[in-house]
C-alpha cells in the first residue's frame, strides 16, 4: 500500500484543482440534501441511508475488527457521527506495546464524503506522516477516498502505515503545520508524495 507524506501547502493552484475537488463538494452537498420532493419516490429517497451504512459498519467492526482494533461502542451508540477507535501497536513493529486512539467524524454526506480521521488522546504516534496534533497524511482520507472504502479499510491502512515505519520521527514540517493548520484536517490541501516509509 503506498504511503504519502505532506511536503508543503499548495498556495496558488486553486483554479487548477478546483474541477475535481469543487465538484466533489457539489455532488456531496446534493447527496446530503436528500431531495425529499423528487419524483423518484420515497422508495429510493432515504435520508437515513447514511445512518444505516454507519450502523452496518459499526456491527462489522465489532464482529470482525482488524487485529489490535476495538471500537468504543457505547460512545458510537450515543453519537453515531463520532466514533473513537482504540488501536494497539502491532507486535514486531516500532509501536509494539503502545496504545493509540483514533477519532472518526462522519457527515450526513457519508460515504460520498470521507470521514474526518485524527489521532487523539495522550499518545500520538511518532511517525513521518503523522503530525503532533494528530492529523494524518494519508491519501485515502481525502483525495483518494472512495465510497466503497470503510472505517475498517481506513484502520487497516493506518495499521499498515505504522507497521512499515522504519524510524520514529515527526514530519519535517511539523511545527509549521501544527501552528497554521485548521482544526479539521480535511481543510488542508495535502500534497501527497509517494514515499517508501
Amino acid at each position: 500500500m503506498p504511503m504519502f507524506t505532506k511536503l508543503a501547502h499548495k498556495t496558488s493552484t486553486a483554479a487548477k484543482s478546483s474541477g475535481q475537488t469543487a465538484a466533489k463538494t457539489a455532488a456531496a452537498a446534493a447527496a446530503a440534501k436528500g431531495n425529499v420532493t423528487s419524483p423518484a419516490g420515497k422508495h429510493f429517497l432515504d435520508n437515513t441511508r447514511w445512518q444505516k451504512r454507519l450502523q452496518k459498519e459499526l456491527m462489522s467492526l465489532l464482529k470482525e475488527p482488524p487485529p489490535g482494533v476495538t471500537v468504543d461502542v457505547d460512545q458510537a451508540h450515543t453519537k453515531l457521527t463520532e466514533w473513537v477507535v482504540h488501536m494497539e501497536g502491532a507486535a514486531g513493529t516500532l509501536y509494539e506495546g503502545e496504545k493509540f486512539q483514533l477519532q472518526f467524524k462522519f457527515s450526513p454526506k457519508y460515504p460520498f464524503d470521507s470521514p474526518e480521521v485524527i489521532f487523539v488522546g495522550e499518545n500520538i504516534p511518532i511517525h513521518p506522516h503523522i503530525y503532533s496534533n494528530g492529523h494524518i497524511c494519508l491519501s485515502i482520507l481525502t483525495e483518494d477516498w472512495s465510497p466503497a472504502l470503510s472505517v475498517q479499510a481506513i484502520c487497516l491502512s493506518i495499521i499498515s502505515m505504522l507497521s512499515s515505519c522504519k524510524e520514529k520521527k515527526r514530519p519535517p514540517d511539523n511545527s509549521y503545520y501544527v501552528k497554521t493548520c485548521s482544526a479539521n484536517p480535511k481543510k488542508t490541501k495535502w500534497w501527497y508524495h509517494d514515499d517508501t516509509v
Binding site: 446530503a32 440534501k33 431531495n35 423518484a40 429510493f44
Partner: peptide
C-alpha cells in the same frame, strides 16, 4: 429522469 437526478440514487 427522476432516478438519475436524485443525488442519493
Amino acid at each position: 429522469e427522476a432516478v438519475c437526478n436524485d443525488a442519493g440514487t
